[in-house]
Nucleic acid binder design. Structure first.
Lengths: 223, 223
DNA sequence: GAAATTTTCTAACTAGTGTTAGGTTTTCGC
DNA sequence: GCGAAAACCTAACACTAGTTAGAAAATTTC
């Protein structure tokens, strides 16, 4: 009971979701096909009807993990008005990235934790997608710097590595129900752009009208 | 040949180093006692003379990974003059943290990559050490804020999570021979304290005399 | 140098791994 | 309702895992 109901959902996605969750918790080698099958509510052998092998499965999970982030961030950037400032673009990218990795947290965490353990072939294929994403950020930061919004001597390569490192780490501590994603994004942008130092304006306040924000809203609760 | 020579080194540490390296590359479940033994140049069964089980081994690796960071940072903080500014203390902590995690990279990476996959009992034990370290950073940031060097409205909890997330991510991309640790630490401190924004002074220059910097130097080059 | 102790090796056991072939059930167009 | 296609299950295969007991080697002690 309730089994028939659960099975109704398209099982390919069920297997994929289960795989992401198990990979996230037990790593690449620690994940067994039987554990995935159990989570997806079918037998181990049946997985092979949907995926050719365990490597095929982890490859799919990895690709989904990054593509979701790429698509979300790209979408958010494209829906931004053309006259947006560089800092606005940075904050939008940060918020979009956070939204993506938290909403598909199983995949992101699986990606983060498993990537280093996966066979070489799968890793290199996935690395191309990662490069694509890195380039997006390179352009976002460079754009802001060329507009004169960032220090000319700021090392954008290091900045990008720091930002993405910190952002990706959020999946390890972020718990839904606590801080809102918008609040985290805002605070993070403030730190990256203005720093923690006293005296600097806390919020980013560029020339453009702040009414055009895609999703942000004023008055978030603390904690 | 050359075997006798290698064996001369105390084998307990040899096993431990090998374990850190293999755990780092293959994760918790992916690491086999035979692979560790191979790396340490002995037989799988012989490991059990030094460690009671695989879990015992990973526990030791995890503890070493964090204790090394804690000791290095604590040592650096204690050797700082009493009149150090809050920002000086932050930069020192950042540099010490970076130095530690890069110098014992195998252990740090193993810790980072394996922690989420390890049995519950081992994880909780290790978590206490992690809490100790978190508290150290809480105090460093709070100290700077109470001295008036950081914005009063800065969320120190988020700041700490961001900083440690970004710092811990460096082991994934830092390659010896490239940038120096000091350069990375300086640039990172500048971003955290002053932000990337143009107009803000790139270097931290609080009320105190800037001559007291431990190692930092003016005129940082770009890239 | 013999005895005692420490350290390592050998060979095996059990349990669990990814994967597969062939049979069963379910779904669906007609 | 029938037959074909899709989805799933069962039972097994070859292999590798952590671990162990006991023998062998290396080292230390006297």
């Amino acid at each position: 009971m309730a089994k028939k109901l659960a099975k109704s959902a398209n099982s390919q996605k069920r297997v994929l979701d289960a795989a992401a969750k198990i990979f996230r918790d037990y790593g690449y080698a620690g994940t067994t096909m039987r554990a995935i099958a159990d989570e997806a509510d079918l037998q181990a052998g049946s997985i092979y009807y949907h995926y050719r092998s365990k490597d095929d499965l982890i490859g799919a999970v990895l690709d989904i993990g990054i593509n979701a982030v790429i698509d979300t961030v790209r979408g958010a950037m494209e829906s931004l008005p053309a006259e947006s400032t560089g800092v606005e673009r940075i904050e939008t990218a940060i918020r979009a990235h956070l939204t993506a990795i938290i909403e598909i947290g199983d995949y992101t965490l699986a990606t983060r934790r498993v990537f280093g353990q996966v066979p070489e072939a799968i890793r290199t294929k996935n690395l191309k997608l990662r490069d694509t994403y890195a380039t997006m950020w390179r352009e976002i930061l460079l754009h802001a710097q060329q507009r004169g919004e960032l220090r000319p001597d700021a090392n954008l390569t290091l900045a990008r590595l720091f930002i993405l490192g910190a952002l990706n780490w959020t999946v390890e501590w972020y718990k839904p129900g606590g801080r809102s994603i918008e609040e985290v994004a805002r605070e993070f942008t403030a730190m990256v752009v203005s720093g923690l130092r006293d005296g600097a304006p806390a919020a980013a306040e560029p020339a453009a009208a702040p009414a055009a924000w895609p999703r942000a809203r004023a008055g978030r609760r603390a904690l």
